[in-house]
Each structure stands twice: as structure tokens, then as C-alpha cells.
Design a protein around this nucleic acid. Structure first.
Lengths: 344, 344
DNA sequence: TCGTCCGGCTGAAACGTGTCAAGGTTAGCC
DNA sequence: GGCTAACCTTGACACGTTTCAGCCGGACGA
């Protein structure tokens, strides 16, 4: 049943040429005479020949695939990023091995092993931890590494990120200006740099507004998911009303949607009782029970840019200049934070 | 900078054994003496050797990767399916090449080419079209094919699906029982079997309730997305009120969320003016502006089962029995359809 | 003592492709 | 007609594995 497994050699004999010529037709069609080329192409068609990428890769040293490692497949933010990556790579005829670290360093490590065995051309990754030992090693072995949604600290590594501190600032400034003085920050796990940056950006805005760290209370979550958001909301509502936050800023929209669900369930009105701001502006934010204010990131461009950077570094190793691309986030105000409060 | 590219041969000489032995340590550790094995492992560690999967694949004929082709990465339904696939394959040390056909036959075809070149072990696919010529060819060449979210018509191809006709029945029966007599069906493109099945299931329920085809008006969409849902809603609202549907059943939740957004924007109340039922019960359905009634599918199990079926067929080619697994969907009623209407 | 068996290991032959030096043909030119 | 150059094509080798027939040496039985 498994067909005859036709190889370049069969094509060669069918077309009456040498294997070298067939290979040339495949890789540098211009250097072979038109008549020969057509004969070879016909043979390829007749036999239904499909080149074996493993052999090609073995010979060439590196393959036509690249790895994409994200923190959470279920998060629309990352699927949009992935879409951007796919657009750029698909056009270049490259395959993407999609890996989901789930924020787990062990899983991330396993996937990096796998990608290394695959001899991928490069890895686009949103790392779980900070300065990743593994990534340095990967680079030393000739695997291109590009940081995604994370700013690179090394000048020899490209990165594409969004200014998370600025994003945090925008959100908290918005809330502070609306009169909020007790704000909850929901995010985690804390080892994620994005979470920390958004928090610190918020702090910065707070100080600018003449407030202090005490006005921004942290609620760390074990994961950035809807379920974790619901939990965090319960914890917030567990406080006596007088100490309870009047606004919540979430490190991403999934958390915010979770918070919103739980608040609604417990009959707390948004934004009248508690205002809410999320992060990412995923498509579902606008469709939420209360349309969600959020900090928008250029998700697809993020992925696309990262992929293009990789392709450039790959095709043009010498001319390539490493860059740290930073996009600017943008606050989108919707109903969930539209309520002005008189500071008490 | 690209390190020395250490191969199995280097390991062999460092450990003072032959390459065959190193290979054995890697693949059948039990047949090599413990002392030798340790020596080899130490050498592997010292040199930081990482096996080259391309070479292995070349020799073995097939690799340790499989392809997953879905209709839309941005649809949480498919990311959940992907998560299921990943769970099962990750445990088996396999890599998943994630492909997004976007419902476009040309893109699907390009990806199948790519997967064929990669000599993947198998392909899990939700095909765009019906009886796919390409898939048959793929199978003939020894690539395992498993249909995902689509029932197989061939006895020699495994499939894992959910009973879409039943799902359509559940939804429409629910609406008919609530008194609705003018129902709109929003879905598309029509070439997707899922869409057609859900529609026909709905028709069936309608007839059971003593109604006819005229009570279910079709609104075809160019794609199953939020934006297309908004468009469809405008079209529905374009009709004179007396002819306008009092309930809308959408072929998936993205469409339903789009419909909901547009209805809300045009001040049409859900469910009082128009009731709404979606399909898939993605996590965001419950968090929508009006919590969405929806037909739930076991998304993760779908992916997981498909992957396991593939692994089984792959590891156990003879003992394997082809199966068409069918899961049952389940109606989840939420606010968006909780309104009983007196038939006029 | 010889023969047999067996666990461990070796060495070489594939797998399907890309590359490259070298060969072959043709046309152009003096 | 011979020389050169331009253009195509060839054939062999290399890439890093796996696999397998076969070798070696020691243990065991007769």
C-alpha cells in the first residue's frame, strides 16, 4: 500500500538525465537548458515525485522549518501572533513547528530540545524565564533566536516587543485620572517579565499622579487565564468594602474576562462599583458582557516582524543588523472603565 | 560562531567505541553493556551532542513529526483541539507542524505539499472540501491521514468527529420549543460540511416540530468569523420587522458573537427581541455581553483522540482497526435564548 | 579438548539529496 | 581548421544516522 517511494534517481532515469541535473532543475532552474528542464519536470509530474526534505536538510545543514514557542495556545493574543508568523513564513515556503510551553519551564525546555534535534533554522520564542541559558546555547549552535513579546538584553539577539511599561502606564493613568485611588493589579505568574513590566509601568503612572505604591495592590495569579481571573476576583471581593479596590487592572484580557465574570456573578456592577481594564485587546474584549477597556498591541505585526527578521538574518547573515524592535501600545477605552469617581 | 556541529562520530571516538554502538545507546540502550553505555552517555554530555533528526528520518523513512491542518487558528475551537493533539503527541515525543488553511483550498493544498515533503508520519486534518483527492493520494504514499471534526466516508480512514446533525437538532428544537417560528441560520461558507450538517440537523428538528423548511431562513457567510457575523446580523435586520427572524442559530460561536455585537449596536435586545444560539461553546461564549447559549463539543478530547488514533496506527500498523469515532454534542442554555415567545 | 552458544561490539552499506570539479558539446572568431 | 569561451551535463562524494551481518572472546557442556 505505501507507494513506491519515488526518489530523485527515478526521475533522473525516467527523464534520461543524471541526478545532478534533476537537483539543478529543482534548485537552480535557470542554469539548465529549457528543453532538459521540461523533460525533467514532466518526469517529476508523471512519477509524482516529492522531494524529501530530510535528505535536503541533511545535506544543507539546516532545514526549512522554524520553531515558534508561545506561552499559551489558548490565548487569542498568541494565536494572532502566530497568524502573523504564518503569513510571513508561508510566503517564504517555510514550515512552522508550533510549540506551547504553557508557561512551564520544563515543557519549554523539552520543546527546545525537540527543535534543536529538528535543526530548525530559527526559534521565535516568548521565553518563560528571563535570561535564558538555553537560548544562548542554541545561538552558539547556529540556531537563530528571536525574542517575541520580550525585549532582548543582548545586543546580538533580535527581539520584537511592545512597550509593556508604557502599556501599564496608560492603563493606570487612565484609572487614576478617573479618580480611582484603590486599584488592584491582577497578573501572574510573577516570573513573566510582561507581567512585571506592566505592573511597574502602572506604578510609574501612579507616582506621576502623586500617588504611591500603596494605591496599587498586587494580586498574583498562578496563570494568566480566565479561571485564574475568577479566583482573583473572589479574593478582591473578600476584602471589606472600605478597603476594596474600586478599579482592577489585569495583565491580560483573559484575566480581565475572568474577573468580569466573577464580579457579575457576585452582583458587583462594572464599571459603577468596580472599573476594569484589561490588556491585549483581543477580539473578544469588545464582545464581553461589559465591553472591556484594554491596552491594544499590534499582535499580528508582532509575529510578522519577528518572522521577517528571522528570514532576513537567515538569508543575509552578513548584512543583517540585529535589532530590538519596540512597538507602542494604545489604550482603548470602552464601557468597563467609563465611570468617574470622586476620590474619597 | 556556529559551533563545531558535533555528530555521532565525534561521540564515538571520544568514548572509544564505534558509531554503531553510540546509535545503540540512543535507540536500544538495553543491548549495550552498562559500562560502555555510561561511557557513551558521558561523551554525549561532554560534547553536547544532539542527534540530527533529519538523518534519522532519512534512514528510517519517516520522521517524528505530524501535521495538523485546521480551518482557522484564530478560532478557539481549533486551538482547544490543538491543545488536545499536543497533549497526546508531546507525551510521545513527537513534534506537531501546525498549519492553518484558513478555509482556503489553495492554502490547504500548499500545506499538504509541505507536509508531504517533510515526510510526516501522519496528518490530522479538517479538510476544506469533501472527498479530498489529495488525501487519498497522501494515504497511498504511506502518510497516515485522520479526519478531524469530520466523519470519514471511507472505511479505511480513521475519523474523529462530533455529530453535527444532532447538534443542529438540539439547537433548533430548543428554539422551536420556545415558540420561535421565524428562525435564521447563519453559517458559511457552504462548502464546509460542518455548516451544512448543522443546518440539516436543524431542518430535521423543525419537521419533527411540525414546521417546514420555510421557517428556517439561511444566511450564508463568506467565512465563520466575528466580522462575518456582524454582516449577517445587518442583513437580518434589513428585513421588515414582520418578516424578521425572532431567533438566530449560528454555525459557530464566532459568528454568534458577531451577530450579538451588531444586534446590540442596533439596539436590538437579546433574547427579548431576538434569541441567539451559537455552536462550539468556546470559553468566551459564557463571557459574552449576553451569555451565549451554545452547542458544546468535547474540543480537547477531539484532538487527543485523533492523535492517539494516529499513534496507534503508526506503532501498530497491523493490529490497528480503523474507526470512525463520533462524539455527542450537548446543548448549553444560557441567557441569550432564555425567553419564551408566544407563536403568532 | 573441542564445539557451541551468546552477549557485546564493529564496520560498512544504505537512505535521498546538494555540490562541485571535470568533461562534453557547440558556436564564434581569426 | 584550430582555439577559446560559453553553456550544459555528468558522476562521485558527503551529510549523520540506522541497521545488520559478522567478529571476538569467554562460559558452558560433553
Amino acid at each position: 500500500m505505501p507507494g513506491p517511494a519515488v526518489s530523485i534517481r527515478d526521475v533522473a532515469s525516467q527523464a534520461g538525465v543524471s541526478v545532478g541535473t534533476v537537483s539543478n532543475v529543482l534548485n537552480r532552474p535557470d542554469i539548465v537548458a529549457a528543453s532538459t528542464r521540461n523533460r525533467v519536470l514532466a518526469a517529476i509530474n508523471d512519477l509524482g515525485f516529492v522531494p524529501n526534505d530530510a535528505a535536503r536538510q541533511l545535506r544543507r545543514g539546516r532545514g526549512r522549518t522554524l520553531g515558534l514557542v508561545v506561552l499559551d495556545v489558548a490565548n487569542p493574543f498568541f494565536t494572532d501572533v502566530a497568524k502573523g508568523v504564518e503569513d510571513a513564513t508561508g510566503a517564504a515556503g517555510m514550515a512552522v513547528i508550533f510549540c506551547n510551553s504553557d508557561g512551564d519551564p520544563a515543557k519549554e525546555s523539552r520543546y527546545l530540545d525537540l527543535l534543536e534535534e529538528q535543526r530548525v533554522q530559527g526559534v521565535l520564542i516568548t521565553p518563560v524565564d528571563d535570561a535564558n541559558e538555553r537560548l544562548v546555547r542554541l545561538r552558539e549552535r547556529g540556531v537563530l533566536v528571536i525574542l517575541l513579546d520580550r525585549r532582548s538584553t543582548r545586543p546580538d539577539v533580535c527581539s520584537v516587543a511592545v512597550d509593556d511599561r508604557l502599556g501599564g502606564e496608560l492603563a493606570i493613568r487612565h484609572l487614576a485620572e478617573a479618580g480611582h485611588r484603590r486599584i488592584a493589579f491582577v497578573g501572574g505568574p510573577w516570573r513573566l517579565e510582561q507581567v512585571r513590566d506592566r505592573y511597574h509601568g502602572g506604578l510609574h503612572a501612579l507616582r506621576e499622579a502623586g500617588l504611591t505604591e500603596e494605591h496599587l495592590r498586587r494580586f498574583e495569579t498562578p496563570s494568566p487565564t480566565v479561571a485564574a481571573g475568577r479566583d482573583a476576583a473572589s479574593r478582591i471581593l473578600g476584602l471589606p468594602r472600605s478597603a476594596r479596590a474600586t478599579a482592577v487592572f489585569c495583565a491580560n484580557d483573559l484575566l480581565a474576562l475572568g474577573v468580569l465574570q466573577e464580579l457579575t456573578r457576585q452582583q458587583v456592577r462594572v464599571p459603577e462599583d468596580i472599573a476594569l481594564v484589561g490588556y491585549d485587546d483581543i477580539d473578544f474584549a469588545a464582545a464581553a458582557a461589559v465591553p472591556l477597556s484594554s491596552v491594544r498591541q499590534p499582535r499580528q505585526r508582532l509575529g510578522q516582524t519577528a518572522a521577517l527578521l528571522m528570514l532576513d538574518e537567515s538569508n543575509n547573515p552578513d548584512g543583517h543588523r540585529h535589532q530590538q524592535v519596540i512597538f507602542e501600545p494604545e489604550l482603548v477605552v470602552r464601557e468597563s472603565s467609563q465611570f468617574t469617581r470622586t476620590p474619597n
